[in-house]
Write a protein that binds this DNA or RNA. Structure first.
Lengths: 127, 127
DNA sequence: TGACATCTACGAAGCAGTTCGTATATCATC
DNA sequence: GATGATATACGAACTGCTTCGTAGATGTCA
């Protein structure tokens, strides 16, 4: 399995996944709304991420345009299964249980989760 | 929120939670079944964990007896909500969805998860 | 009591992630 | 073409985690 991105990298990836592509300045603007950080720090992070092949960049004019190179879904799956193993030793049920207790999950959301599971159960039967 | 334990610390905590209490040697024996590591490394980790107040120790005779000082449930909850925020921006549904896709969740386990959610839904109604 | 096994204490190295300062390149525009 | 704003490149410091070697304390038993 591929190595998981760090916390800072994930923060940047989240922005890139949402915006499709972005310059360092754009990423910097968004992050600095919630966090004190300098422009060059974000730049350096994104340069390192380029080396690691987490993102790719296109050199258009002065500023480079960055794009995520790893898929959001795959990354999320990887992080979930890591947590599942490390913290719950593989017990998906325990994970969900804590999830429901932790967050004040809205009734609406709960309903959706239940539907999703019922759908998954049905599909499992038909295979 | 309290700082989350690191990966190595969690590995040790899992053992202490299961065994109630243990010496460094016992922890070392268990970890070294699956991983190449020296005795003093485990010792050092557990000493640091003592400083951090993650575990406490009782000095009985030569070897110290260690015990987890933080609760398993609380730690698990903390780690889940951290993941929920960082990776899914708070969407519990997305997390569960990836969970079901990632792991080949057994039909039995799926059924249990569904029951758990239905129970949670019922309880939410009665409040 | 002396030798040996086993324990704790502790310093230090190595590595990865994060942060920032400074140097240098590039572009627009006057 | 000089100036200023804005970009990238890069080195370096700092921190925290992990790992291990060595030194010294402690208990056991012949």
């Amino acid at each position: 399995m591929a190595k998981q991105p760090t916390t800072s990298e994930l923060e940047i990836l989240n922005i890139l996944w949402e915006k499709e592509c972005a310059t360092v300045r754009e990423v910097f603007e968004i992050i600095s709304e919630t966090k004190s950080i300098t422009y060059t720090t974000v730049l350096k992070l994104m340069q390192i991420m380029t080396e690691k092949d987490l993102v790719e960049r296109e050199e258009q004019g002065k500023a480079h345009l960055y794009r995520a190179k790893i898929a959001q879904t795959e990354t999320q799956k990887g992080l979930v299964s890591e947590l599942l193993e490390k913290v719950f030793r593989g017990s998906a049920m325990q994970l969900v249980q804590h999830l429901l207790e932790t967050k004040k999950t809205s009734p609406q959301e709960m309903k959706e989760i239940r539907k999703m599971i019922q759908k998954a159960e049905k599909e499992a039967k038909n295979e």
